[in-house]
Nucleic acid binder design. Structure first.
Length: 557
RNA sequence: GGACUCGUAGCCUAGCCUGGACAGGGCGUCGGCCUUCUAAGCCGAAGAUCGCGGGUUCAAAUCCCGCCGAGUCCGCCA
């Protein structure tokens, strides 16, 4: 809705500039509080160009703006060299409320076109997802939801690294250790992995067996392949369970080994070996210094076997056929991301886009599945749910246990997902239990509560067809503007691949709603009809945006 | 040592790409608000040399250079 208002302001401003013979970009921006609803700093640019004072120009242009044709802009003023626009809130309120009502669950969706293959999570099948993987999954899944809502056809992919040393260690461990079937599958695998890693470290014999195992798997030895697949699948069952709990799913699981077995990796090597960047010494490698990457990229070992990066090139060539590639990767893969981009350019293929996130570290340092030093997502969710349950019991003791458990779980999932996505991905996070588990802070529960409050008002009255828009309060204007801003915010999040924008948006909308809720009554008030419709619109905007971040939408809590 | 990312009040964070009006929030602290739609809420107060130093500009948290601190990577690992 706000896009229409922006266009109108731009049209008015351009008209005035044309009349004054002073052309410049409209430079529209969100003003600071107290300076209207929309501002333009175009006069500063013009001032330089024309050698005049910004304030004087702003006065002149503001005077030339013709408001008679405007629908959503009601006033314009010049101040400190800025041109400030004021919205016609009764008009904007009516248009917004009607549009939200008409579009319902689709409000905020866009008409973008194209196919995207989005890779995220992709944790090694050697144990449960830890909180670092959780960050990846939350960002990736939110992006998938956002991009779909924007109109793209999105295919999400879990790239399964089955050719690494990790899975081989697990397989070796399974040959001589008892699998603890009392544990959740991924945790049972982790236990084997930790123990087997230690054993391998201490025994040269086992190291030899491990190398042999990896060779046999790459060669496609039938029984070895079965062992690897079974081990990986067993672990993946546990991982998928956790992801499901978080509301995360993948359309495809792509096994790294497929590209070796299909011969794609071999073909990639042939194509690359004729590149001017290719060097064949004991190993085949690419000199990528022409792309600003000093580190050479080894493609084939002296024993003829391939490396992870080589297989990933084949993987990306396959993906390139399916659509625009977006990868959500951890910061440890930054160099590989750059190298991959360069190689795709060499091959004349489209380059993947990356959303790189920094690490979550524990007080003692970074996490390691191999050393058993990590906090799993299961642990985090259980802890969050237990803590949420205490809160629900304290507040809603009168409700039955099923209700309390369901709400606690949904609050926990929302809190965890929100916490993972609200911080910009490039920020390094130091994990502290108190921060994730503190529901007193603004976060998902605060947002879920705003939605529940809206529901409780709406369930007590019929939604009126007709409504009068009178003079709006400060809170009502804020709500109208925010609801109207939802589609442009979603569109920006999709464009910039930033789910965190929606996290910030939700917080603002929930804050405005809580403030509105405490300052005025809806039911029984003079403007009941309008307020009911406004609450309905806020509820829709909240719910639609919450779904994009995978935050459970609660009617009651 | 080199490359990349981050550095905003006691703590966490937005804004930085696309430079503009007194740097937004939250936690914590202090003080108020439950006989009316759920107080997981609301209202108010105090709290910031935007890491440091230089430069560009009418204007710098934002752009450029240098330095310091933190994280990550720099394997014929994945």
């Amino acid at each position: 809705m706000l896009d229409v208002v922006y266009e109108e302001a731009e049209r008015l401003l351009r008209g005035a500039m044309a009349e004054a013979g002073a052309e410049a970009e409209p430079a529209l921006q969100e003003p600071r509080a107290g300076y209207g609803d929309l501002a333009s700093s175009a006069c500063f640019t013009l001032a330089r160009k024309l050698g005049r004072a910004p304030a004087e120009l702003a006065e002149e242009l503001a005077g030339k703006i013709e408001l008679s044709s405007a629908r959503f802009i009601s006033a314009v003023e010049a101040l400190n060299g800025f041109i400030n626009f004021h919205f016609n809130y009764s008009e904007l309120a009516r248009a917004t409320i009607e549009r939200v009502a008409a579009e319902g669950e689709r409000y905020g969706s866009g008409g973008r076109r194209g196919r995207i293959i989005l890779e995220h999570t992709s944790a090694n099948p050697d144990g449960p997802l830890h909180i670092g993987h959780g960050r990846n999954a939350a960002i990736g899944d939110s992006l998938a939801r956002i991009l779909r809502f924007s109109g793209y056809e999105v295919e999400t992919e879990y790239y399964l690294n089955d050719m690494g040393r990790q899975l081989a260690v697990v397989v070796l461990g399974l040959r001589r250790l008892k699998l603890d079937t009392s544990l959740k599958q991924d945790h049972a695998i982790a236990k084997v992995y930790v123990e087997a890693s230690r054993m391998v470290e201490e025994s040269e014999e086992l190291q030899a067996e491990l190398s042999e195992l990896m060779r046999a798997y790459e060669a496609g030895d039938e029984s070895t392949v079965r062992e690897f697949r079974e081990a990986a699948e067993y672990c993946m069952q546990g991982i998928r369970e956790t992801l499901q709990r978080l509301g995360v799913s993948h359309d495809l699981t792509v096994w790294e080994s497929e590209f070796v077995r299909s011969g794609e990796v071999e073909r990639v090597l042939e194509r690359l070996s004729s590149s001017p960047c290719a060097r064949q010494e004991e190993v085949l490698y690419l000199d990528l210094s022409g792309f600003g990457i000093d580190k050479e990229l080894v493609l084939r070992r002296s024993d003829g076997t391939m490396l992870y990066a080589t297989r990933d090139i084949a993987h990306h060539l396959w993906k390139a056929e399916r659509g625009r590639m977006i990868n959500v990767w951890g910061a440890d893969h930054k160099l590989l991301a750059e190298q991959l981009g360069a190689v795709m350019r060499i091959l004349g293929a489209p380059e993947p886009e990356f959303v790189i996130h920094e690490f979550i570290t524990l007080p003692g340092g970074s996490m390691s599945t191999r050393k058993g030093r990590f906090i799993s997502m299961d642990e985090l969710l259980d802890e969050a749910a237990a803590r949420a349950l205490q809160e629900v019991e304290r507040r809603r003791g009168e409700k039955d246990e099923a209700f309390r458990r369901r709400v606690a779980e949904q609050v926990a999932v929302g809190a965890v997902r929100y916490a993972m996505v609200r911080v910009a991905p490039e920020k390094h996070v130091k994990f502290r239990w108190e921060e994730v588990l503190d529901f007193e802070r603004q976060g998902a529960p605060f947002i879920q509560y705003a939605h529940a409050r809206a529901c409780r008002i709406l369930e007590k009255a019929e939604l009126p067809e007709r409504f009068e828009v009178g003079e709006l309060s400060q809170d009502e204007r804020r709500l109208v503007k925010l609801v109207a801003a939802m589609p442009v915010t979603v569109d920006r999040a999709a464009e910039e691949l930033k789910p965190s924008l929606l996290a910030a948006y939700l917080l603002e909308l929930a804050t405005a709603f809580h403030s509105f809720y405490s300052s005025v009554r809806v039911l029984g008030s003079e403007s009941e009809a309008f307020r009911l419709r406004l609450v309905q619109a806020v509820k829709t905007a909240l719910a639609n945006t919450m779904r994009l971040l995978g935050i459970p939408v609660l009617e009651e809590m």
